[in-house]
Design a protein around this nucleic acid. Structure first.
Lengths: 165, 165
DNA sequence: TTGGAATGTCAACAAGTCTGACGTAGTTTT
DNA sequence: AAAACTACGTCAGACTTGTTGACATTCCAA
């Protein structure tokens, strides 16, 4: 692509700067997921289970379709994860009252305990990074992340923000 | 971004703020990888191949062990990827001059062309996000990402930065 | 009431990761 | 020179997580 070295105020957009950003994103994502991944080692659960638990905790009563859209996987893929979580009594699936086709998802006590453990580890990692970088850096971080999202995904993200805030 | 309330300098460390950061990271990573993933659809290659191509492009002549450490996978896993890339003449593996046990990796013209395509797509996505967020946000973004890395990984990251700059 | 759409489940398969064991060539140590 | 170690490749087997295809149930609207 070779944006060529433009002028001063755009100099941070050289290919080299962009490449560094790409690599930073790659490496940071590893650090970001390492804690929960490690906690789940040998439990029979993996990252997919963590994600499901996270969003069910975040928006209890959510139906499967909604969760599907958030996670961006096929329903079959999610179903396998959900099946084991339900069998292990981590998640409860209740038939919808208004529409009986729907299944609404809730964490059990056991599920909430596990989710809390994973969440704590990940939040701690995130908090330490935030502290190191400082509040202004955090604001910028969030701005760039939001700009990196696909526009459809950004809708899910904002819906969750509003629900959670 | 609308950090909402805030005001005092520590409010950004509430659990809710941290959860939003975690979700933003998750969703942003998806947007970040979607371009190359889509380009590779139906080519027989996947994200693993992209990563290998990226780092070989970044530091040509790198040996297998070094690449292994950067990617954080086992040699068996990397080997499968590398085997197909070499068979398809995307990557060339040359016996080391000083130490003949080592294999040094280079992109062929064909490999460089493919890597360029993938890289262009990802840089374009990154550039657009950077433009939307602005230079100050980018600086903060990079600071937080660096703080999110595991310390071992940060060494690889910085080694690449020095090599590339 | 009947047919289509939405929701969710079951089954089979593919990609990519892992561990473990082994082979070969080259290097270093003794 | 022999022994030990290192770098790399490969085979085999397993697991997680993603995919498509087929199917059952439920709802809604023509």
């Amino acid at each position: 692509m070779s944006e060529g070295q433009v002028g001063d105020s755009l100099l941070f957009l050289t290919d080299e700067q962009l490449r560094q950003g790409i690599e930073a994103m790659f490496f940071a994502y590893r650090g970001f997921t390492a804690g929960p991944d490690h906690l789940l080692e040998g439990t029979g659960y993996g990252r997919a289970h963590h994600r499901a638990l996270h969003f069910i905790a975040r928006a209890p009563g959510m139906n499967v379709n909604r969760l599907l859209a958030i996670l961006g996987v096929t329903k079959q893929s999610l179903n396998r994860v959900l099946r084991t979580l339900i069998a292990d009594e981590m998640v409860e699936s209740r038939v919808g009252r208004a529409d009986k086709r729907e299944r609404h998802l809730y964490l059990t006590e056991k599920g909430a305990a596990l989710e809390g453990q994973l969440s704590d580890a990940q939040r701690k990692w995130m908090r330490d990074a935030y502290r190191k970088a400082g509040p202004d850096a955090v604001a910028g971080f969030r701005q760039v992340l939001e700009a990196l999202m696909d526009s459809d995904i950004r809708k899910s993200y904002n819906a969750l923000r509003e629900a959670g805030a």
